[in-house]
């Protein structure tokens, strides 16, 4: 087996891949969230931003898209494989095991991950390709968003995804720095303020858009 194969085969190697791809995805999410907030600057500004991404710098957009696709696939495959190994590592369960310090966020990484994966597929079909959109317009991204969130179930599905995202980030950002060997030694390694702030800012920032549409704050 080659060096890369050995790395990927090891549980530590797979986890490092998850951490690295996670960091790439978090970086994207911060930029994506900030971009979305231009919705509050009006239809003209928002559609111009959309045109920038889909025409003016489309080559760059494609590089980003491919990087994200590879990241999501590696992240999800590693998560799946590690989960299977982790389950196999304890064939006989305890009659009683009481988690002492595990956070709700760490315990919901797997469910949240699956929800996010479904969300990513739906979201691309909704606002990028228009496959799942009732009245998709290639040049009218602002309108696509207003119509896209006009039904409550869809707005709630998005908000649910952001709920899981905040949990995923609260554990994931903190964990990634440890997995990648970057965290400094700490008197209380379970503390995670940076992850808390980023989780709230990213998931909260995204949530503002469906919330504002539902509350009638953008027209």
């Amino acid at each position: 087996m080659g060096r890369l194969g050995k790395f990927w085969d090891s549980s530590v190697g797979k986890k490092i891949v998850m951490g690295a791809t996670g960091v790439i995805l978090v970086g994207f999410l911060i930029i994506h969230m900030a971009g979305n907030l231009q919705l509050f600057l009006g239809a003209e500004r928002f559609n111009a931003y959309s045109k920038l991404l889909k025409h003016d710098i489309i080559e760059l957009t494609w590089i980003v898209r491919l990087t994200l696709l590879v990241s999501v696939v590696l992240h999800a495959v590693a998560a799946y494989q590690l989960t299977m190994r982790n389950k196999a590592a304890r064939p006989e369960p305890y009659a009683k095991r009481v988690p002492q310090v595990s956070t709700y966020a760490s315990q919901t990484m797997r469910y949240g991950g699956v929800y996010l994966l479904l969300f990513i597929v739906y979201h691309i079909g909704h606002f990028t390709t228009g496959t799942f959109h009732p009245a998709f317009s290639e040049s009218g991204t602002f309108g696509n968003v207003l119509i896209g969130f006009s039904t409550w179930p869809i707005a709630l599905f998005y908000l649910g995804a952001m709920g899981f995202l905040s949990l995923h980030l609260y554990h994931g950002i903190w964990a990634a720095f440890r997995t990648l060997g970057l965290a400094r030694p700490s008197g209380d390694p379970l503390k995670r303020q940076i992850a808390l702030v980023l989780a709230i800012v990213v998931a909260g920032g995204f949530s503002l858009v469906p919330l504002a549409v539902k509350l009638g704050l953008v027209h």
């Binding site: 190697g13 797979k14 986890k15 390694p189 379970l190």
Partner: peptide, 29 residues
């Protein structure tokens, strides 16, 4: 199994070994 950084090991350790050692292990790896 692999490490998911639940933190349960550090809490259970009778010698108070910190999960900071796992950061060191991954860095060396």
């Amino acid at each position: 199994g692999g490490c998911t950084l639940f933190g349960e090991c550090q809490e259970a350790c009778p010698k108070g070994i910190s999960i900071d050692t796992i950061v060191q292990m991954n860095r060396d790896y």
